[in-house]
């Protein structure tokens, strides 16, 4: 199983890059790669039809979270100026 190893190593590498990046908005694409990798690893760990639901729920949830963080950040800064 080389696939799970590739996915897990990419997830850990990008988690380090999320922490190392200083700019708040430029952290979000790296976080998106982490959530892609975690979604893939969920399915590789447990191949079962119900895992489809868990994958979709996790991915949509993390996307919604990034969307809310970015939108609130831009709105807050604009009001601040």
């Amino acid at each position: 199983m080389i696939a799970l190893a590739v996915v897990a190593i990419i997830a850990a590498l990008e988690a380090v890059r999320v922490v190392a990046e200083r700019n708040t908005m430029r952290k979000l694409p790296y976080l998106n790669v982490v959530s892609f990798a975690i979604t893939g690893s969920l399915m590789l760990l447990l191949p079962h039809p119900l895992t489809i639901l868990a994958c979709a729920a996790y991915f949509v949830g993390s996307t919604l979270e990034s969307n809310a963080i970015a939108s609130t950040w831009s709105g807050g800064i604009r009001k601040h100026e």
């Binding site: 997830a11 988690a15 708040t24 952290k27 982490v34 975690i38 979270e65 990034s66």
Partner: peptide
Amino acid sequence: ISLSLLAAG
């Protein structure tokens, strides 16, 4: 953002 990293793991 770090908190969502925690949840992801």
